[in-house]
């Protein structure tokens, strides 16, 4: 039996296909060099009570995990419900995220992160997965050279604009081999939304700025 009638796919046309362009390279790239970002580590501007390190900090490399990574400590300034307070808190929160990348320990980060922050949760899960089965992360440190808070008295949850610069990230297997292709360094504007309660600041949303 033949179909009595048919709608041929030919009668449908695709009208338009809009396209996004990405400009990704210019000129000659003839001299490869390190792909790490050029930003160096800098201490927080405010007086941060950093614990006295008992042994020297050593970043991770292909041979082993980072050693003696200083645990971020919430600065006094970050406990204030003010513009300066939320800015100090945002800097601290990214330090805690950076610490999680370097150590696989997301507990510090969790303490100041709300459960509904989609990106925060995804990052915690990704870091945890990257550190399973004896794997470790090389790089991934985050610097926040620019932090600008928007705070209004009694005006809801303040938003903070953060420039987050992250180093190239390698995931190394227990035997030191690369688990996957390295993730490129990034330099991105991000928006962090925090809320203040009796327990201090908590991140309730985080997203990229386009």
């Amino acid at each position: 039996m033949t179909p009595r009638t048919s709608i041929s796919a030919r009668s449908f046309i695709i009208g338009s296909l809009a396209t996004a362009l990405t400009l990704t390279a210019c000129g000659n790239n003839t001299q490869p060099q390190s792909a790490s970002p050029t930003v160096s580590a800098s201490a927080s501007a405010t007086a941060t009570p950093t614990p006295t390190p008992t042994a020297a900090y050593k970043p991770a490399d292909a041979k082993g995990k980072a050693e003696n990574v200083p645990i971020p400590v919430l600065p006094e300034a970050a406990k204030a419900n003010s513009k300066e307070g939320v800015e100090a808190f945002a800097r601290y929160w990214f330090q805690a995220l950076s610490y999680a990348y370097e150590t696989g320990d997301v507990r510090v980060l969790k303490q100041t992160t709300g459960p509904n922050c989609v990106l925060c949760t995804a990052l915690q899960e990704a870091i945890t997965v990257a550190w399973t089965d004896g794997k470790w992360i090389v790089g991934g440190r985050i610097e926040t050279p620019v932090v600008v808070g928007k705070y209004r008295d009694g005006g809801g949850s303040p938003q903070t604009t953060v420039q987050a610069i992250q180093q190239l990230i390698e995931i190394r297997r227990a035997d030191g081999t690369l688990y996957q292709d390295p993730t490129k360094a990034s330099n991105r504007g991000m928006q962090l939304v925090a809320t203040f309660s009796a327990n201090g600041w908590t991140v309730i949303d985080l997203g990229l700025i386009y």
Binding site: L123, A126, I169, I171, T183, S186, R188
Partner: peptide, 8 residues
């Protein structure tokens, strides 16, 4: 693993 901050 999608691991990068921006990537996530």
């Amino acid at each position: 693993v999608i691991i990068g901050l921006e990537e996530n």
